[in-house]
Amino acid sequence: MKTLFGIQKSQHCRISPWNRGLWVSGILAALVTTSVAATSLDEQIERLTSEVTRHSASVHALEQQLLHPVNTRVAVFLTLQNRQALDLDSVELFLNDQPVASHLYSDTERTSLEQGGVQQLFVGNLADGSHQLKAVVNARSANKRFVRRELEHRFEKRSGTLRLQMTLDARAPDYEPDVTFREWK
């Protein structure tokens, strides 16, 4: 064989074919074992995920029962009316001028809202009577403007759960953000 440094002696087979067969089958067996181990591990993780999710749901249900007695409970939901008009950056929520919730949106959350998702923005408790809800919305509108708007809503809380739906909208040509509130019985 001619190489860069002159003629080189060709090498004989250093491992006999029989031994090579053993080596190959050994390596294959090791690969199969690794792959089986990974699969069984994935199954265990899947089973654990299922158990942990159910467990978390139980704790969440207990938490809801303990923290939010039914008679005083208030929940605020956020939806988008016009899915293309606004790119939501953040929403801050104030109840009677006290900040109660603020949320900075990721791409995933924004996409989900645009595809009809409904965000449970706030769950808390309020005494019966008249109250004021203020939402501060930061967004980028379809005409590439950054907008920040404060929107207010007065409502009356009576005994029982109050469910408020906040629907965010912006219409052409000025894409001015607007929020409508709806109370669900």
């Binding site: 969440h60 249900a61 809801q64 029962q65 939010h68 039914v70 409970r73 929940a75 939901f77 939806t79 959350e109 989900s112 809202l113 595809q115 009809g116 998702g117 409904v118 965000q119 449970q120 769950v123 759960t161 469910r163 739906q165 669900w184």
Partner: peptide, 17 residues
């Protein structure tokens, strides 16, 4: 508790989100 809190009309959207 979630089903008591979420109006039936919004349940799909809440689950999707």
């Amino acid at each position: 508790s979630a089903d008591e809190l979420v109006p039936a009309e919004l349940a799909d959207g809440v689950a999707r989100y």
